[in-house]
């Protein structure tokens, strides 16, 4: 039997249409790169590129976690403060182990494990309050943001926690060295990004995140354990904060109450620039990676020129961010 309608039997279409939603962030990135090249001949130099990517990697790794949280309809404002606490705890743990273990790789490894554990635990805390406690994610993580921030101030005694100089020397290569000239932070960032993309696209968990963010009810009626999936997104976020801090601590070997300030906003901004919807339901990791690099390049370009007054740095940043999102709209309104 036939239904007379301008619709035809569904043909599974494989080919992806090139549209602005996909190309938008890439376009913004290309424009920024061109701007950078025109401003400074060293922009594309090996050193500059590795510098920008390596220092973007912390936000990048955190933003990949945030992509999952946001795709599943959640939000985590506590990541910046959480990073500071993780850094603080790692430094305290490593300093405390020196008397018994001496300056050894073991100390660094235990410190790293402690960092991952603290991040994971913080994620579990956030996730449980959101899923079991039924409290708005915004409120929960706003609360923990304050808690973590004062916790690090308390741990640092209002000042700065510094890693023992000798351990710092041992740990330092984790930020500054790498394989074949690619620094470790970039390698880890790339691995996390590839892993994230696979999980988002090719696993049931990724699909469930999008489904829950799209409609919690539909997901529940489709036999998805909504609470567990949400909880896992927060735990993943916490652990990735831990991973990011593993790379951050060796850079300066210190943590203070200013560590990680506003990282949460940078991470969320990167996620949204990359095309993930803030209210959930659609997320893409590669977009987030592009978003992070865009944010990193903005800061870099501002430092590489001298005709924009440093007083206007924030304005330039704002314009680029809005532009990047605007490009995704493309000419849809036509």
């Amino acid at each position: 039997m036939s239904v007379s309608a301008p619709e035809v039997p569904a043909k599974p279409a494989r080919g992806m249409r090139i549209d602005f939603k996909t190309v938008g962030p890439l376009l913004a990135l290309v424009l920024l790169v061109l701007l950078g090249i025109s401003l400074n001949e060293n922009f594309l130099s090996y050193n500059n590129i590795t510098n920008v990517l390596a220092r973007s990697s912390f936000i990048g790794i955190i933003a990949i976690g945030a992509t999952f949280v946001i795709t599943a309809g959640g939000l985590d404002l506590s990541v910046g403060s959480m990073a500071a606490v993780v850094a603080g705890v790692m430094i305290i743990v490593m300093n405390a182990l020196i008397p018994s273990m001496g300056v050894s790789v073991g100390v660094v490894l235990i410190g790293m494990l402690a960092g991952l554990a603290v991040g994971g635990a913080a994620g579990i805390g956030n996730g449980l309050m959101v899923t079991r406690g039924r409290i708005e994610a915004f409120i929960v993580t706003l609360g923990t943001m304050g808690i973590f921030r004062s916790l690090v101030t308390f741990l640092a005694d209002g000042g700065t926690l510094s890693l023992n100089f000798n351990v710092a020397d041992l740990y330092r290569p984790v930020y500054y060295n790498g394989i074949l000239g690619v620094p470790w932070p970039i390698i880890v960032f790339a691995l996390v990004a590839i892993g994230g993309e696979i999980v988002m696209r090719r696993t049931a968990f990724g699909r469930y995140c999008a489904a829950i963010g799209s409609s919690e009810q539909v997901s529940r009626y489709s036999s998805i354990n909504v609470d567990n999936v949400r909880l896992i997104t927060y735990i993943v976020q916490g652990i990735l904060v831990g991973v990011a801090v593993l790379l951050y601590v060796p850079r300066l070997g210190s943590a203070s109450s200013t560590t990680g300030v506003l990282w949460e906003l940078e991470a969320i901004a990167a996620v949204i620039i990359g095309g993930t919807t803030l209210k959930g339901g659609y997320g893409r990791i590669w977009g987030t990676v592009v978003g992070v690099i865009i944010l990193g390049l903005i800061g870099n370009i501002l430092n590489l020129q001298s005709f924009i007054s440093p007083y206007l740095n924030g304005a330039f940043q704002g314009v680029i961010i809005i532009l990047a999102v605007l490009l995704q709209r493309g000419r849809r309104a036509a």
Partner: peptide
Amino acid sequence: GKGLLLNM
């Protein structure tokens, strides 16, 4: 509301 993910 409960059956289909309308945006997918």
